[in-house]
Write a protein that binds this DNA or RNA. Structure first.
Length: 323
DNA sequence: TTTGCATGCAAAG
DNA sequence: TTTGCCTGCAAAC
């Protein structure tokens, strides 16, 4: 159930551990057997994330497009690295760093001979680390649609909403349908595209932020939080949102996405005091302004947070601060 | 122990 | 517009 930040982190795992080595591609579950056969034995030459989609380019010119949807996940295992911030936030690894920045802790450095150390990392939802010492490669857990296996690392994909082999033309077409992604597109150009589209539509801004053709990577959590941070009424038609507010939404998304990719968490209260921020980091609850806080008092004004379904998804907002 | 929901999309009807 | 994905989690029994 990832929003854009986790997909970029997953792509980074593929860049680190799966590029430029032959990859055995299989479908333990069977549903992707034909696709796997087209990619089997080839090298991955590029991992690309755009919004919530990831594209892996293989050296035969074919691509694997993956969309995790609501409950898809990648499980990595073997000789893989894990970001220190993620690991410490999960309380599993001792090593942390003072600045909380993205110093990748090499939780591997396989010093010796033999099979790679088996470190498991689930990406999406909370990223969980299970340092373990079983055999490599591990048995697939659950219904694994695709397994990508190198001599030292393995990635298992389960429960995706989309998983298919594509040509470059199909990849380009898929990406062309997507709105700007701050980690792909130039920030200024992205801001212009986003602003131009939003200012044209009468659709409520809450729906526009979730529309992947308008802007890439925002999901239900970031949507609610961005709107609160802007103190903007979610039902305001796009064309009625003041231009500077629209630009502010884009810039705030740039900031939150970068923070999310760095930390592996959806931090949306980064403007809290350092002490409160630490607390928000430590507990999973109380991490957001309005998301999933129906009926609880607004952190600013105390008014009960409102919730209403809009376009089949739950929308949370403060009826007073976002009036 | 069981139930119901969920950070989302694509395909079926 | 509804269903499938078929998972992980927390809340409810």
């Amino acid at each position: 159930m990832p929003e854009g930040h986790s997909v970029h982190r997953i792509a980074r795992q593929f860049e680190r551990h799966f590029e430029h080595v032959p990859v055995a591609v299989s479908s333990p579950q069977g549903r992707f057997a034909a696709g796997a056969a087209q990619l089997d034995g080839h090298e991955i030459v590029q991992a690309k994330a755009v919004g919530k989609q990831m594209f892996l380019e293989f050296d035969n010119g074919l691509w694997l497009r993956v969309h995790l949807g609501m409950y898809g996940a990648w499980d990595f295992a073997g000789d893989i690295t894990v970001d220190a911030t993620t690991a410490s936030a999960n309380g599993r690894m001792g090593q942390t760093n003072q600045r909380g920045t993205d110093l990748a802790a090499h939780e591997h450095s396989l010093s010796s001979i033999g099979a790679p150390r088996l470190t498991r990392l689930r990406m999406s939802e909370q990223e969980k680390l299970e340092p373990d010492a079983t055999s490599f490669p591990p048995e697939p857990i659950g219904a694994v649609r695709v397994r990508l296996l190198t001599p030292t690392a393995v990635a298992d994909l389960r429960g995706p909403t989309a998983c298919e082999v594509q040509t470059i033309e199909q990849v380009d077409a898929a990406i062309a349908k997507l709105g700007p992604d701050p980690l792909v597109d130039d920030h200024a150009a992205g801001e212009e595209r986003f602003t131009a589209v939003v200012r044209k539509k009468s659709t409520p801004i809450a729906l526009l932020l979730m529309d992947q053709s308008v802007v890439s990577g925002i999901g239900n959590v970031y949507r609610a939080e961005l709107l609160f941070r802007a103190r903007l009424n979610p039902f305001t038609p796009g064309k009625e949102v003041p231009e500077q507010t629209v630009r502010g939404l884009w810039r705030d998304w740039v900031k939150l996405l970068e923070l999310g990719v760095q930390t592996g968490q959806m931090l949306t209260m980064d403007d809290l005091s350092p002490e409160d921020h630490r607390k928000a980091l430590a507990s999973r609850a109380d991490r957001h302004w309005v998301y999933h806080r129906t009926g609880e008092p607004c952190r600013i004004c105390g008014t009960p947070i409102a919730m209403q379904e809009l376009g089949g998804r739950k929308l949370y907002w403060c009826p007073k601060d976002q009036a």
